[in-house]
Design a protein around this nucleic acid. Structure first.
Lengths: 333, 333
DNA sequence: ATGAAAGCGCTAACAT
DNA sequence: ATGTTAGCGCTTTCAT
């Protein structure tokens, strides 16, 4: 591997001059400049980013921690983030936490050790005191999708409460009153917010908030299937379900199929999460679409902002709009 | 940020001793050892990976270049890779090439500049001479999903030809003879292999290989929809379609829906690619399942092997098995 | 207009 | 059993 030293020797100048030429960081006479450039050409010299980063204390690398890239929402977040990052000259190190705060902390440490310039994290439910040093030191950190109760950090998320409020209202407006909610495991602020929207909508429309209609489950296809089965095998099953998690929605569909339950005839279904396949499921899904790519890109934008300019004032909270995409599963068309 | 130097001063030893303690790389008396450890505790010292990497010429970082993480296959590859990598002590820098060889080359250079220890790449169709230096220098490189005609590099992929052969045969065994193929844009070895399997199956079963039944399209939902529409609006449409790309399969489903074409009654459909939603589409998809996570993990395994031991002999070609998962869309159940 | 040299934070060969 | 010191490859201050 060619080093800057070798380029310098070969072109008969100092390492300083080579560096200055390469970075255009001070005047160098045309003669020397072309000598240097020639040597670079001949040797195929490429600067070692590591050395440069060590010296400049800038790695142009961001850490991105999500629970699981396979989760369609995070897949898009990752893509949106990578695009924007690449555009701004950053690389992204991807980490999957599996909703495990321990893994999350492990990755945060690893990434910081690697001297990343900024961190984007979709925090799992749980204790996040290990982020406190980041906050107090002003390390460029952006929270995605979930705000953290304890301390304030720059955050980009959707208005979960509003989204489920609207979706629930949609169901109500089509005559439903026994509306069940598929919630992920308790303890997550995300779920709490979504649940809140659901409850408010019921209340605002004079409907009873019934806790027996709220079921918790793992935020997976299996979890959703299980919860849906429990719901639909009751003596008086709900006439509509709102699912707070994409994977659980898929699980509901699977459960319906296995139980021979007709959707939307027997149960209407509205679910969080829009994906490429949402329109080709049976039935096509009425979905709460989150601007996932834009969220990923926005997160990178925010973190870049924190990196390049002193975080003046309170940490920003950027709320992105959701959209209810109406298809067959809610039964209104 | 605390440095090793500070830890050394604080515990009254040399930097060497601190390093030796931290890395357990030579004997240090219990007394000094505990002094060092105490200082580490007090200061919350964490080694700077950058400095360590510069010195040791090992970054414990791998580059992963795929066309698009949003592609369900690559999503899983990425996850499988990240899991295995983390298990082996590596991080992964994720890059999306969008099937653009230019971007691909750009990322390769960027990653090499960052001194990654190994590269995993799913090459796009096109000229890959820029990988030649990697090959000739023996840089740990693993190709995923597509072998490269020109030169030989360690590769992990599925037996595409075999997979489409089997799937086509399945269709034939259920009485189909007008079997169309949804191919992605020409020029890709992947597509070529899949096409080959399809043709062989036809031939082996005494069926005519008809080029008018092979349609090319963008490997996207839209591309698949368009191609399918063209196919199904003919005067004598095929009775079965085999799709060589997951996204195109989804597109076919969408096209059927829009055209009011009944699947599998009017056309049977078999497609490459299994995903979480394959069983809940309308109709559920008969799919050629690739072990995507295992492929990702395998790629990391292979690259790790190349890193830790001298690549003896010919580069390995690891072929992973596909599985035909039979559901309703092929019409046989 | 250019060069010498210090130093980023660490490891490891070479002392002792 | 421990310390000194020379780098890893680069940037940038300080001289000239």
């Amino acid at each position: 591997m060619t080093t800057l030293r070798e380029v310098a020797d070969r072109s008969g100048v100092s390492t300083a001059t080579v560096s200055y030429v390469l970075n255009n960081t001070r005047y160098v006479s045309p003669v020397l400049r072309s000598k240097v450039l020639a040597a670079v050409q001949e040797t195929g010299y490429r600067p070692n980013s590591l050395a440069r980063s060590l010296r400049c204390k800038r790695t142009h690398t961001l850490g991105l921690i999500v629970s699981d890239v396979v989760n369609p929402f995070f897949t898009e977040v990752a893509r949106g983030a990578e695009d924007k990052a690449s555009q701004l000259g950053f690389s992204i190190v991807l980490c999957n936490s599996d909703e495990d705060v321990g893994k999350e902390q492990h990755y945060v440490e690893l990434l910081l050790d690697k001297q990343i310039d900024g961190l984007i994290i979709a925090p799992s439910p749980g204790e996040h005191s290990f982020l406190e040093p980041l906050r107090s030191s002003g390390f460029p950190t952006v929270l995605v999708n979930r705000s953290l109760p304890g301390f304030s950090l720059t955050t980009i998320m959707v208005d979960n409460e509003r989204a489920t409020y609207d979706a629930t209202e949609h169901l109500i407006s089509h005559g439903h009153s026994d509306i069940a909610a598929l919630l992920s495991l308790p303890g997550s602020r995300l779920t709490a917010e979504r649940q809140l929207g659901y409850e408010s909508a019921l209340r605002d429309h004079g409907l009873e908030v019934r806790f027996d209609l709220m079921v918790n489950g793992l935020s997976t296809v299996e979890g959703g299937a299980e919860a849906s089965k429990a719901l639909m095998s009751r003596s008086n099953p709900p006439t509509a379900i709102i699912s707070m998690s994409t994977l659980m929605t898929l699980g509901a569909l699977r459960a319906f199929k296995e139980m021979g339950v007709k959707c939307p005839e027997q149960v209407a279904l509205v679910g969080f999460g829009e994906a490429i396949w949402s329109s080709v499921t049976d039935p096509p899904l009425t979905a709460i679409a989150q601007p996932a790519k834009a969220i990923g890109a926005g997160a990178v934008d925010l973190v870049e902002g924190l990196i390049s300019s002193p975080p003046s004032g309170r940490p920003e909270l950027r709320v992105m709009p959701c959209e209810l995409i109406i298809r067959r599963s809610c039964g209104c068309q």
